[in-house]
Nucleic acid binder design. Structure first.
Length: 316
RNA sequence: GGCGACAUAGCCAAGUGGUAAGGCACGAGUCUGCAAAACUCUGAUGCGGCGGUUCAAAUCCGCCUGUCGCCU
């Protein structure tokens, strides 16, 4: 549609080079960056989340980064709301928005214009459902769900994921709408954005893993241990406790494990996270993938990205 | 040199005569208010090698190889 806002998204697994590339692209295209990262939103969590420093940002405005205390709750719905606002503002300034980040759910929900329902959470109901699950298992909950949303029930019966089953029931009980209906409704909505999507990946997975391992070592040199100690001893939210980089070091601080072991664990968790990110992004057929290890230099990678964006902007 | 223990998938590991548990890692996937989350799927015609006993051996016997420990 004509009134769609044109934007660029840069996605990819952790340590693939999103930050460096997107800053250069933003400089070239007169853009600003909207971070789509569920952990870089938190203040005080900077080394572990590989948050770009002021120097790395090179004067390019970065939004939705480093703006919340670590004990604040946050969610996709809030992200989408905040990001929309940012994009509108950037667009209003006549600049090109760059949505950059590794949190696939956030990026997709924003770009696909997923509809969320006001403040419809029911903590008490959720707690009660978890209680039922712990007592009787998943089957009764699945049967319950099946009564009003057989489609979702059938899907989740295979998946056996309590978290999703409970959310599906909670959703229906609080909104009166089934998840299936909600999805259909969402799909009808036209996205207000037209995005040129760029994905960073590696032909050889080992290359990515090497970079991850190396980056963890760098983080340690930058003072990850001190940051971890500070973060672990301060209040955290349900989201921020999940950050990779701190909890893995906790056993070391408690004297329960050797530092080396914890570091290995931290690296492994990061690698597994990267793999999950790739699984998420791979199913988006609109992404133009750039394989970092196929380029001889950053210059070439950058040029390829510029080319894709130029083509995308022109075509759109 | 002698004695003893052990040798099962990338790693850890159960299994002591009846046709190879489990965990971790790896790989693949799911995904609509916690997503750096939660969850699903996936591996040994073979148990260090070679012989032997037996209807049947990862499981018993012998030899060899390797690892570890102890002794001299």
């Amino acid at each position: 549609m004509e009134n769609q806002i044109q934007l660029v998204s840069v996605v990819g697994p952790t340590a693939s080079g999103k930050t460096g590339l997107s800053v250069e692209l933003a400089k070239h295209f007169h853009g600003e960056i909207v971070s789509a990262d569920s952990m870089q939103i938190y203040r005080g969590m900077t080394i572990a989340t590989a948050k770009p420093t002021k120097e790395e940002q090179q004067g390019i405005p970065h939004h939705l980064m480093d703006f919340l205390p670590a004990d604040s709750e946050y969610s996709v719905a809030m992200f989408v709301e905040d990001a929309r606002r940012c994009i509108n503002e950037i667009n209003g300034r006549g600049k090109l928005p760059f949505v950059v980040g590794g949190t696939g759910l956030y990026v997709d929900s924003l770009l696909n214009h997923i509809q969320f329902h006001g403040e419809h959470r029911d903590e008490a109901l959720t707690a009660q459902l978890w209680g039922e699950f712990e007592k009787n298992g998943l089957e009764p909950l699945l049967n319950q769900l099946e009564a009003f949303d057989p489609q979702t029930a059938a899907r989740l019966r295979i998946e056996k994921n309590p978290k999703r089953v409970i959310r599906a029931i909670e959703f229906y009980r609080t909104t009166g709408m089934t998840l299936t209906e909600q999805n259909e409704r969402s799909r009808k909505e036209q996205s207000p954005y037209r995005a040129v999507k760029i994905g960073l990946n590696f032909r050889d997975r080992e290359r990515l893993y090497e970079r991850i391992n190396l980056r963890v070592d760098c983080m340690l040199e930058q003072g990850l241990l001190q940051e971890a100690q500070a973060v672990l001893s301060s209040p955290l939210s349900a989201t921020s406790v999940k950050a990779i980089g701190y909890k893995e070091l906790a056993p070391y601080f408690k004297g329960e494990a050797a530092l080396e072991e914890c570091i290995e664990k931290l690296k492994r968790e990061t690698r597994r996270y990267a793999k999950r990110q790739l699984t998420w992004f791979r199913r988006d057929k609109e992404i133009h993938w750039l394989y970092v290890d196929e380029f001889d230099s950053f210059e070439e990678l950058y040029n390829a990205a510029v080319h894709i964006i130029n083509k995308g902007l022109l075509y759109g």
